[in-house]
Simulated scan of single mutants.
Amino acid sequence: MRQGLIVAVALLAALRDAGRLPLRLPQNARQIPQDVLRRHLARGAMQFGFELGTGVRTYVSASAPYAIAVAVLLSGGSCGPALAAGLGFGAGRALTPALRRLSGDGERWDDRLAVRLSGMTVVSSVLIAAAACGVVR
């Protein structure tokens, strides 16, 4: 039952990201202002991470975070899926600006990402559904 619900939500997320399902996501669609990081780098980074991670103030364009939240909630009460999701989210957030910087041409990197972003979000939701098939019992 839980596995089926996780797969259903992940597939709905994939359909939404592919533009096949007009579905509004629950969110507080306000960007975190840049001055949060300018005031004090360490405290600003902590505030930014807290607000982004908890959804207090952020704009989420992809459906995968919602699908993964459902998967974590329905995974059976183990801390493992929540820890894996948190580590994956953190690694992804850190890897994106690092790769952009390492590319040597941030503007070109942004352009290439924009072309691939829609497909990447769909693949993320499909991977969540596939993982649910193998993890949730």
Rank of each mutant, 00 (worst) to 15 (best):
A29L: 06
Y59W: 12
L127R: 02
L12I: 07
L117P: 00
L102D: 03
N28I: 04
R57H: 05
A69N: 06
S124L: 02
A130H: 10
A84Y: 07
V123I: 14
R16H: 03
S125I: 02
Q34R: 14
V115R: 15
A84R: 08
L12F: 15
P65L: 08
E51T: 10
I128G: 00
A10S: 13
A91R: 00
A10Q: 01
T96S: 10
G19H: 12
R112F: 06
R43M: 15
P26Q: 13
G119R: 10
V126H: 11
G119K: 09
S78K: 06
R112V: 13
V122K: 01
V7L: 07
R24P: 02
M1C: 05
E107V: 10
G106P: 01
L117N: 12
A94T: 09
D17P: 04
L25H: 11
A131H: 09
L5R: 09
A8K: 04
A85Q: 04
F89L: 11
Y66Q: 03
A94D: 05
G53Y: 02
G19Q: 05
G76V: 05
A94I: 05
A114H: 11
G134L: 15
A132E: 04
R16M: 05
M1F: 07
G92S: 07
R93Q: 08
L52A: 11
C133T: 12
L127C: 12
Y59K: 13
R39D: 14
G106S: 13
V126E: 06
A42P: 14
G104F: 01
R137C: 10
L99V: 05
Q31I: 09
L21T: 09
C79W: 10
M1T: 14
A84P: 02
R93E: 08
V70N: 01
F48T: 13
S75M: 00
R20T: 02
R43Q: 14
Q27P: 03
M46N: 07
S125L: 04
S78W: 03
V126C: 13
L23I: 05
A71E: 00
R30M: 04
D110Q: 14
V115E: 15
A85N: 02
W109N: 00
